[in-house]
Design a protein around this nucleic acid. Structure first.
Lengths: 206, 206
DNA sequence: AGCTATTGTGAACAGCCATTCAAAAAATGA
DNA sequence: TCATTTTTTGAATGGCTGTTCACAATAGCT
């Protein structure tokens, strides 16, 4: 059964190639402005072939989004979990998020700005997944912060709201970075966010 | 020429009615999943009539977005400019933003999450406007904060980044509020954001 | 009321594109 | 090599929807 293994491998390679090209094109033009012919062309397959790998355009799109998103959350969590203390964990959260965004700018352009909410009813499951993932991510952040509150390093504020705030800071920096043409690396904003988030903008008398 | 005035008034009324219905429908389903027939139906006009008020679907959409957005920025600025001192201005900024969002939830769902980036090339001008408006809004916030820095009430950090941070906090609270089903009023988060933004989350020894 | 100008209507047209599928090409294997 | 199975292909199909425009309704005027 050595043939089967090769076939399998080839199948996966082709599938990946299609997904990669689709990602680029969808990211540049959005779901509705992309044709199957375009993707077929870019990935070097015929239109018909695409249907051997994916059930249709919807499925191709949702698969692309889903797999990439899982990768993102996975990477971020892995790195954060490696860190030991609270400050390091927060630094890692910001750093890992920024790193993924820098390495996947086109994909994130799609994701950060939306293009995800009002798709056809058929894609309701994708919407649901996105919402669930988001909520889970916030919970992940929240749990980190809770420990900080417990250890009295952080103020005893609403932890969910704190998580949303931190996430918002990361997100808005990323959006800003993506919109502005030439600028320093996104990662250079890491320290700034840490600083603002932890100490606020007001001048404290010491 | 009293007839003309009435005609004019009626024209505006009809136009508004269409825009209002279009807003609801677009907000619920996104640009591409809405048909002209649907809008015609909802607003009580025939398909053909829509073309007397707007050049086409693209134009109807961009007009709707543009006018509502101008309203939003206008409202926010007006209120902020009324406030006197820095803290009050920031409070107003958050409050006015939240108020608009609460009063225009469906529209903001469209806007906050995106659905704005990858539209057809024909709408490039809308994209441009959105980017410009955003940048201008950040500058507006930035100028407020700069005064705070000058008066040594705020720490001497990068003012643009501070503005982006504040905006990010507002935005993420709004997104959170819009996604979560039942929750307290958005405005109740105002104090929290003020607090986090000004004082940070770290526990300062006094 | 009757005649003209203005406004409203929605069926028909035209373009676009996801999807299919019959036929071609390639791979398999005896 | 050649028969059979598997894979690939892309033109043809069918559904959908933005836009138009000939006609209908209405309003304005004498």
């Amino acid at each position: 059964m050595e043939k089967l293994a090769r076939k399998e491998r080839e199948f996966r390679m082709h599938r990946m190639e299609i997904l990669e090209q689709a990602e680029k094109i969808f990211a540049a033009k959005g779901f509705h402005n992309v044709t199957m012919a375009e993707i077929a062309n870019a990935s070097g397959f015929s239109i018909g072939s695409l249907y051997q790998f994916f059930e249709g355009k919807d499925n191709l799109y949702t698969t692309m989004i889903t797999e990439k998103l899982d990768l993102m959350y996975g990477q971020i969590r892995e790195k954060v979990n490696m860190a030991e203390d609270l400050t390091e964990k927060i630094t890692m959260l910001i750093g890992a998020s920024f790193q993924f965004i820098e390495e996947n700018t086109d994909f994130c352009g799609l994701f950060l700005r939306g293009e995800t909410a009002p798709l056809s009813e058929l894609m309701a499951s994708l919407r649901q997944k996105l919402a669930d993932d988001h909520s889970q991510h916030l919970t992940f952040i929240e749990n980190i912060l809770k420990k900080g509150i417990k250890s009295r390093y952080l103020r005893p504020l609403n932890s969910r709201a704190m998580a949303a705030a931190l996430f918002g800071l990361i997100r808005s920096s990323a959006i800003d970075w993506m919109l502005l043409p030439a600028e320093e690396s996104l990662n250079s904003k890491k320290e700034f966010i840490m600083d603002i988030f932890l100490r606020g903008v007001i001048k404290h008398e010491k």
